[in-house]
Design a protein around this nucleic acid. Structure first.
Length: 343
DNA sequence: TGATGAATAT
DNA sequence: GATATTCATC
């Protein structure tokens, strides 16, 4: 695609003749300005200070962002944008490796658009052609983006459930121990409901393998403490897992190359991904479709050469390293101590 | 009154 | 099929 789209032809509603030249006196010339598409932080510096580099922005992106801004101003929907931003701010860059939110591109996939409720949260990247009809959409944008349970997130979930035991694993506790910013009790409750159904199904057909529909759940083996009948109380064997989880995971700015997930160690690999095609694995699908900012790209993406870290390493068990004063983290640490003492 | 879990909706 | 939302119940 032609990346270098000139921003100078951007039309703000006036001709070039209307420009007030006095306003430009003293301003740096075009040649003096750093292109907006250029990153302000060199790659080496970003790496050294664990700064998540922003994806490369072309002039198309810059133009699009400008159009969005102006479009929002025109339609007086700035408030809506702030809500949107706040909704996504809580899923900051460093959370992207564990949480994937759908939403901004959630569109009417049926194509007919017959149901108005399906039209919510259609992003305005291509807007502007039709006119400002999105002014009344503020109420619809207050919804949270749809959470995607990545295998990493699910594993954290399973670890916590295993640690608590099925009986004690209730949404609120799970949510707290998972320590994932932005994760709601409703998210956990919904997932827990499905996970319990999965466990029940697994108990029913203990000899057979997991159903092909259990991609995500099958990707994380059911811990021993959950496979046995939930005897309840404190009879279950707690699973030693690092608790609470650190609020951030190891810096992993870009997804691992798809082939690592699809074929972890060649043909003779463990059965970790046994039973389903690589393209149908939820994590794999995500990686093939998007980078962490939600932009879509193919499996041979622009970041492929930069992908180095593919193994997520949690903080070591027992040692809870708090690098900054974090009250909630401290509370969780106390909780963990209590849990360990009581178990 | 808030949390839970099953049912239902999207 | 995955996730969100609703609602009866605790």
């Amino acid at each position: 695609m032609g990346e270098e789209v000139r921003i100078t032809d951007y039309d703000v509603g006036g001709e070039d003749d209307d420009r007030v030249s006095e306003w430009e006196v003293g301003l740096p010339g075009v040649d003096d300005l750093m292109p907006l598409s250029q990153s302000l932080v060199p790659a080496e510096l970003a790496s050294a200070f664990s700064i998540t580099p922003e994806p490369h922005r072309s002039m198309i992106d810059v133009n699009r962002a400008s159009e969005n801004t102006l479009s929002n101003i025109r339609s007086q929907s700035v408030k809506q944008s702030i809500n949107k931003f706040n909704a996504f701010k809580s899923f900051g860059d460093d959370k992207c490796d564990e949480m994937v939110m759908e939403g901004e591109e959630t569109v009417d996939l049926t194509g007919d658009g017959s149901d108005s409720r399906k039209l919510r949260r259609v992003d305005s990247t291509g807007a502007g052609a039709g006119g400002g009809e999105e002014a009344d959409s503020s109420a619809r944008t207050s919804k949270r983006p749809r959470l995607v349970w990545t295998p990493q997130l699910h594993k954290r979930f399973v670890d916590v459930v295993a640690h608590l035991g099925v009986k004690n694993a209730v949404p609120k506790t799970i949510m707290q121990l998972m320590n994932v910013e932005g994760l709601t009790r409703e998210n956990v409750a919904s997932h827990l409901q499905k996970y319990r159904l999965y466990l029940k199904r697994m108990q029913g057909l203990s000899n057979e393998g997991p159903s092909s529909s259990d991609h995500l759940f099958a990707s994380t083996p059911v811990p021993q403490s959950l496979q046995e009948s939930s005897a309840g109380g404190n009879s279950h064997v707690p699973v030693p897992i690092p608790m609470p989880y650190p609020p951030q995971m190891v810096h992993m700015p870009y997804p691992p190359p798809p082939q690592m997930v699809a074929h972890p160690a060649g043909p003779g690999a463990s059965g970790y991904h046994h039973g389903f095609e690589s393209h149908s694995h939820p994590f794999n699908m995500l990686m093939q479709q998007r980078d962490w900012s939600g932009n879509k790209f193919g499996s041979v993406g622009p970041y492929q050469h930069r992908i180095v870290v593919h193994k997520v390493v949690w903080s070591p068990p027992v040692i809870v390293k708090v690098t900054q004063p974090d009250v909630s983290n401290q509370l969780l640490a106390d909780q963990q101590l209590d849990l360990l003492k009581s178990s």
